[in-house]
Amino acid sequence: CHSECLGNCSQPDDPTKCVACRNFYLDGRCVETCPPPYYHFQDWRCVNFSFCQDLHHKCKNSRRQGCHQYVIHNNKCIPECPSGYTMNSSNLLCTPCLGPCPKVCHLLEGEKTIDSVTSAQELRGCTVINGSLIINIRGGNNLAAELEANLGLIEEISGYLKIRRSYALVSLSFFRKLRLIRGETLEIGNYSFYALDNQNLRQLWDWSKHNLTITQGKLFFHYNPKLCLSEIHKMEEVSGTKGRQERNDIALKTNGDQASCENELLKFSYIRTSFDKILLRWEPYWPPDFRDLLGFMLFYKEAPYQNVTEFDGQDACGSNSWTVVDIDPPLRSNDPKSQNHPGWLMRGLKPWTQYAIFVKTLVTFSDERRTYGAKSDIIYVQTDATNPSVPLDPISVSNSSSQIILKWKPPSDPNGNITHYLVFWERQAEDSELFELDYCLKGLKLPSRTWSPPFESEDSQKHNQSEYEDSAGECCSCPKTDSQILKELEESSFRKTFEDYLHNVVFVPRKT
């Protein structure tokens, strides 16, 4: 048989008469490798580009789960590009990614509803959504962080984005990388972005840091009482949809009607710091009717980097990364020049730590249904340095008659930039024990000054392991946590139920 035959053949030295091919099969003959313009397919066939392209389009058009959109890589027609490569849609070739590779997620039936953290986790790592997304989240724990972890990498949506009755959302900033909504599939009414009845939605994105392009379709905003109209108009300008909307697409009466839409800028007039305090004062603000001013709200939190936005980490279910302080308005003076500047002394802060701070007014709604208010920009203030805590785990070892090696770990709280350490030492008198000992005694162990690591005695271990207080009263049991108490109650309830079950099964009433 021919060298490319495997198993047997019907005619000697003829690659077209093989029972099976050793390498690849091409047009009725066995070959060692697939010549151009053919590609290896499933490690035994040679196919042309049209064959591989037909497989790709067949799966793409069917949208069946589990099928493969075949691509070409290293002269092979394979189910998908290997790690580190992405497909070129024009020629199906796998090309190296520039940075992290995109991950295209194809949605069944063309859309997916995100109504819980669990459903959001199914899209973790996706960068391109081939379909439409509907966000409908009523509640949950730590929602802002969970949504950002699972949806934060999405850069492109081919269909539309719909935010509907998501009472738990305060902001859409968890879509931190969303840059493009194509609108290839539109919501009824030709809408590519749809926001309806979101009672706590206050911000779409921080438009000073976020760009969003909507290729096709219109915007729809109705019944978002805490979303200011200025935020919607800003989205029109940034996304390129200005002029597409009709009169009733953006409701003037049901958007922002319960919001404090600040239209003035508060400026800080005085800032002073110490290692654990920050004193702030800002310019006074009074609405047209000074009785509408209820006070100020001061927001602050630790910020290692200057990239904080107002609604980071917030949701309507209680999660809030900001510390909020309510401040009463100052006494009002008739003389504008003698107006008191409101302020606040922030206490209990960490030394040498940068804080993000902003302040906003708290006002009631005027009778004319106009909203007044003022808010400052987010500023960054760093507390002063102070003395560091003591170095940890000092170790001293003498390696000769004239040297001592000293080692330690950095302090747990540096409280500033540590530039150097101060080492103090003092000579001590020799131990009298060394002169009084009889060095001729056998088995004498000389006193040693070398360091030995501390260890816990058996008594201390027994005390720590004991669940009861000892007789001397030195140790006591740790208080039980809520989960331990709940577990004990469940076990007790189970024992009672099981005992009742045994009584009912074992003891049967005697027939009379």
Rank of each mutant, 00 (worst) to 15 (best):
G295N: 05
K162W: 14
H341P: 11
K234T: 14
Q199D: 10
V238F: 15
Q245W: 04
T213K: 06
T241P: 10
Y372A: 03
R347Y: 04
D312Q: 03
Q258Y: 13
Y300E: 01
K162A: 00
F299E: 09
E237N: 10
D384N: 09
S119P: 08
Y160R: 08
T383G: 01
N248Y: 13
T383A: 06
H233G: 08
L161T: 06
T273S: 07
F221K: 00
D289Q: 01
E246V: 12
D289E: 02
R176P: 06
P304N: 13
K360W: 15
L345M: 09
S260T: 06
D326C: 04
A120I: 04
F220N: 14
A385E: 07
A385P: 09
P410K: 00
S396W: 12
A259C: 06
L219N: 15
A195K: 00
L133I: 08
L169I: 13
D197I: 01
E231T: 15
L227A: 06
N340E: 07
R347F: 05
Q203K: 11
L229T: 11
L201W: 10
D377R: 11
P342D: 09
P351W: 06
K177L: 12
G217F: 05
L161R: 02
L227T: 13
W344A: 15
L204R: 03
L107Q: 10
V238T: 06
P330S: 08
D115R: 10
K360N: 03
F193N: 03
I395A: 05
L252E: 07
L266Y: 01
K253W: 14
F268I: 06
N307Q: 14
H210N: 07
L294M: 03
R179I: 13
L219E: 03
H106C: 00
P304L: 15
D367T: 07
S389Q: 01
L133K: 06
D393P: 04
S274G: 10
L196S: 08
E302M: 13
Q199N: 11
N334V: 08
T215I: 14
F296V: 01
S119C: 02
L212P: 04
G140P: 15
E246Y: 11
P304T: 09
L266H: 01
P388T: 10
G140Q: 14
Q199G: 11
K360F: 00
E368I: 12
C261K: 03
E156D: 06
W207P: 09
L345W: 14
C261Y: 01
I188G: 08
E122G: 14
Q203T: 13
Y285L: 03
T273D: 01
I134R: 03
D276M: 15
Q245Y: 06
Q382K: 09
D249P: 13
G256V: 03
S260D: 04
M297S: 09
A385V: 06
S171C: 06
R138T: 01
G139A: 04
H106Y: 10
K103V: 02
